[in-house]
């Protein structure tokens, strides 16, 4: 099971990477939306953990929209982890095709449970 982590803050990216690796998942971690789109088209992934505020051309909403628009990535669950907790951001994320939305700071165990739910369809 392989997870793509898209997060521009180094410390949070490393923490999520270590967390999901500790649970036995393989991880690819990138810091921008453009890199995420490159990676997901080059290598298969089972889940995308996506921040919303990303530097560069594509923010998290746009990455999510593009994943949903491409038939080869349409079915990959997208899990938003963001500091943006306003209803408008949640609405936009849902419209862009996100499957789940967590706000920072987040409970590591709750995050892992949600990952398990999304990757196995349990819960």
């Amino acid at each position: 099971m392989r997870i793509l982590v898209v997060e521009d803050q180094d410390s949070i990216r490393r923490m999520i990477e270590a967390l999901v690796q500790a649970r036995g998942y393989e991880v690819t971690a990138v810091s921008s939306g453009a890199k995420a789109l490159d990676v997901i088209l080059t290598a298969p992934h089972d889940l995308v953990l996506l921040d919303l505020m990303l530097p560069g051309q594509y923010d998290g909403f746009e990455v999510c929209r593009r994943l949903r628009a491409d038939p080869s990535t349409r079915a990959i669950p997208v899990f938003i982890i963001s500091a943006m907790d306003d209803p408008e951001s949640r609405r936009k994320a849902t419209e862009a095709g996100a499957n789940a939305f967590y706000t920072k700071p987040f409970s590591p165990i709750a995050l892992l449970k949600e990952i398990e739910r999304l990757t196995t369809g349990k819960g």
């Binding site: 036995g24 590591p108 165990i109």
Partner: peptide, 12 residues
């Protein structure tokens, strides 16, 4: 959260 992290890493 730190305790949760520690428990995750301990059981990894």
């Amino acid at each position: 959260y730190a305790r949760e992290l520690a428990s995750v890493f301990a059981s990894a």
